[in-house]
């Protein structure tokens, strides 16, 4: 039942080692993309001749982007959000889906170093960009100072909002908005936590900020 086009992009993969370009995925996808060229041009996708293409299979678009330092060349359904790309297709499930409508912050990732909501952006719009998800926040075995601080200050309970809180917390400091508890609260308000870990999160951010560690 499943058509060939779809297997590659939806096939489940857990990302163990993502420090190398994943050739297996790339090759499989290249095969599946017969007929699509990889050359960049002003109109990324050729104009359809008619809407018959639309009525059939969802069109697929080439996409190359860097995720957690790994360059990836993919072929995606244009309807796929950045969030669904990382969670459903790349197995990077650390980024969470809480609402899918930009109303909770659980899906926060960094795009070119800026925090954004991955549920409100199509993956195809990320052409050439550098994405950092929670899996890429720390390098290697040691935790990012913000991750350490969240553990120390118990900045979570169920942990579901946590990746989003962490990505946002790092940005909050980078953006220069972590100078007081009140400022942190305001600039972290885009990240809901139903368990109510807020006071501990604020403490964690303030601790990292005042420690002067680079984030």
């Amino acid at each position: 039942m499943k058509d060939k086009n779809e297997i590659d992009a939806t096939g489940p993969r857990r990302d163990g080692d993502h420090h190398q370009e994943d050739r297996r995925l790339f090759l499989k996808q290249s095969l599946a993309m017969t007929g699509l060229t990889l050359t960049p041009f002003s109109f990324f996708n050729a104009e359809p001749d008619s809407y018959s293409v639309l009525a059939g299979n969802a069109d697929r678009v080439d996409l190359s982007l860097t995720i957690n330092g790994v360059k990836r060349r993919l072929s995606v359904d244009p309807r796929t959000t950045l969030l669904d790309l990382v969670r459903e297709q790349l197995g990077l499930t650390g980024t969470k889906k809480g609402c899918d409508l930009g109303q909770c912050g659980a899906c926060t990732v960094h795009v070119d170093g800026q925090r954004v909501l991955s549920c409100l952006s199509f993956a195809v719009m990320q052409q050439g960009r550098k994405i950092t998800t929670i899996e890429g926040l720390s390098n290697g075995a040691s935790l990012h100072p913000m991750q350490e601080a969240f553990i120390k200050h118990d900045g979570f309970q169920c942990g579901y909002c946590t990746p989003g809180q962490l990505m946002s917390a790092v940005s909050c400091i980078r953006e220069g908005h972590a100078n007081s508890e009140a400022e942190i609260r305001e600039y972290m308000s885009g990240n809901l936590c139903r368990c109510g870990a807020y006071p501990n999160i604020v403490k964690a951010i303030l601790a990292v900020k005042t420690s002067g560690q680079s984030v």
Partner: peptide, 14 residues
């Protein structure tokens, strides 16, 4: 500290 803290802050908790 939470025994599953590391899994939760790294996105590895499933």
């Amino acid at each position: 500290d939470r025994v599953d803290g590391r899994l939760k802050v790294t996105g590895a908790a499933t």
